[in-house]
Design a binder for these strands. Sequence first.
DNA 1: ACTAATAATGATTATCATTCTCATTCTAGT
DNA 2: ACTAGAATGAGAATGATAATCATTATTAGT
Lengths: 139, 139
Amino acid sequence: MNTASSLKSRLTRAQKQIHCLLEQSGETLTAQAIYQRLKDQQQMLGLATVYRSLRSLQIKGLAQARALPNGEWAYGLTSDDSHYLTCLNCGTSVPVEDCPVHSLEEKLGQSSHFQIFYHTLEFFGLCAPCTGRLEAESP
Amino acid sequence: MNTASSLKSRLTRAQKQIHCLLEQSGETLTAQAIYQRLKDQQQMLGLATVYRSLRSLQIKGLAQARALPNGEWAYGLTSDDSHYLTCLNCGTSVPVEDCPVHSLEEKLGQSSHFQIFYHTLEFFGLCAPCTGRLEAESP
DNA sequence: ACTAATAATGATTATCATTCTCATTCTAGT
DNA sequence: ACTAGAATGAGAATGATAATCATTATTAGT
Ligand SMILES: [Mn+2]
Ligand SMILES: [Mn+2]
Ligand SMILES: [Zn+2]
Ligand SMILES: [Zn+2]
């Protein structure tokens, strides 16, 4: 049994609930959204427990987090490999299909002494409407 | 004159000071650190102005931000292309030398209607000491 | 240069996601 | 069943960032 699966071995009730919710949901969720959804499903967890469990799931290699432009974090499963292109002005976000970092990740996993669970890759710039608007304002 | 340089055209006093500080410093800095350094250099800016200017510099394509594990943001120049591998347990962070996303960034810039200024790429996992410690705790 | 309009700044306050505290409840092992 | 340690939850504390608004600097028109 390898390290990862041994770390995953035992999940607490809260960790199981959250892992399960992330699996069902398909999309990534903020901690607050997870808290709300569980409450709605009569599976209420304390907010502190939600945050604690998310950190544990990360350390166990099961969950990942990406920072949203507004300062919140979106959590998902590490099996999900998706990336976005986001407008710095209006926040519009579109998915990016390709991901060219897997071979690098593998290489790092061998050379760096780190056990790598996931990566984040995000692109930032201006969408077409915002580019137009900003050019008009500052000619 | 292209779009980017037209957007960069006029910088406010505060934006110039911060851009200059980021140029000198070489490293990335949090907003709070920028505030402190400018104060130390007798170039005091209000904290609100620091945040506003950083956002403007981003929209002008001059500055980039990456989220630190502790929830703060580190700001640098978009000309800086550096990435890190971070331990989810202890926060240890090591630089990653390679970056395999430039060709994708170029492709996206052409196909997506976005004007892309920068990207973030971060790896997360466990460092060797933490892997050992956690294995010992949960056998 | 003078003035009116507009933009930038800064002191302060408000926000709110996240973390901390600690008392209580659950769990595993004997 | 008993006990030690872990997990949980309610609520308070934290702290970075955003919003407010009065003041100051800059711009544009005359
Ligand atoms: Mn990927
Ligand atoms: Mn890069
Ligand atoms: Zn936009
Ligand atoms: Zn570590």
